[in-house]
Design a protein around this nucleic acid. Sequence first.
DNA 1: AGCGGTATGGGGGACGACCCTGAGACGACC
DNA 2: GGTCGTCTCAGGGTCGTCCCCCATACCGCT
Lengths: 214, 214
Amino acid sequence: MSVRVFLVDDHRLFRAGVAAEIGDRVEIVGSAGDVDEAIAGIRTTDPEVVLLDVHMPGGGGLAVIEGVREFDPEVRFLALSVSDAPEDVIAIIRAGARGYVTKTISPDELVDAISRVRDGDAVFSPRLAGFVLDAFAGELPEVEGVSDPELDQLTPREKEVMRHIARGYTYRETAGRLHISVKTVETHVSAVLKKLQLSNRHELTAWAAKRRLL
Amino acid sequence: MSVRVFLVDDHRLFRAGVAAEIGDRVEIVGSAGDVDEAIAGIRTTDPEVVLLDVHMPGGGGLAVIEGVREFDPEVRFLALSVSDAPEDVIAIIRAGARGYVTKTISPDELVDAISRVRDGDAVFSPRLAGFVLDAFAGELPEVEGVSDPELDQLTPREKEVMRHIARGYTYRETAGRLHISVKTVETHVSAVLKKLQLSNRHELTAWAAKRRLL
DNA sequence: AGCGGTATGGGGGACGACCCTGAGACGACC
DNA sequence: GGTCGTCTCAGGGTCGTCCCCCATACCGCT
């Protein structure tokens, strides 16, 4: 039996395209092009699954989910977006969407995804699942207790200076905090950059962040 | 090309079954029936993917992941279990496994899942993905809500420039990437810093990182 | 027709970041 | 005593950052 689907996207042509491609296999009970229209339409048509564009004027998909949740927490959302940016994925999942697929999906896969979301499953484009897991699990814990050959080639004072610079302090501020002259800070920073084969303090910040030295 | 797989399960007959069913499509470089044997075997055979039973004497799959991580963080784990209990799924994912499928999976699907895990994707039985999302829903990183008044006061072009600067590109590099002059980049950066009441690009990087705009 | 917002740029200047060379003081090691 | 490494600091230079004031062009709104 066919799934009752509501379609939310600010591009009229895209809505028409989705309806044309999968309208014979799911029941499209309504559609909307902005947030208010979507919330009102979902309230009256009571769909099982809402196909939801992430980027829309008036607050985007997040606003729709939050608006609908207040009167009907049973509706399931499948985010459908051109973006595969981690921040978009994570935001919409946090809001409560049960799936996230990009618009490059094939009609067959989309119908399958809609059915699975209706049944309570979570559906992701394979690439995106990685983002979600990374966000949950955090980055892989660096092995502790193992000596870092790159870090070890820095002298104690150089490490101290490096930490300040990586945190964004200026040379002057670093000098003040360590009670040494700006020139000495320059010397240490130059030595650190050379030893680590980095070219500027931005790369140093990234290097330190990767090693959780901040 | 075939994936190098190591098989960990305390049931001898199950190992034999997996080998018989998919051994012609993946390269099974070794197998083990307990934790110590698994860690030693993985160290010597250096597989790409480890098929890992969750419930095993001697600490279970978690112990294997932690033991292997110390000497080879590159190995990817695909949990394979009779259990679909949320606590089992969540624990193993938190430990670092990149997939979780139940033993009811078909050989074809298993081969596909192994390949995808090897390629860095995350793989779940559809029903299990829901558990994972629900379990971690409260732990997701903070994401700004529908409208960010601070971000909204930036023009589209300013946001574009801001992203580049926050990522560490110099004015010159940013100008080249956006095909505008260095002077225009300066103008936009000045406007951004003024609107956000920041004083330099380091604070801008921190500001953007807090909002996960990178 | 004028007004405001946006995007694009230039000139010039103050200051920070980064590099090079050079150098004195101290301690460890042989 | 000599050598080596580390820490300290200086002069002098190039380039990047950030600010000021200024101008042009397009666009939408009134």
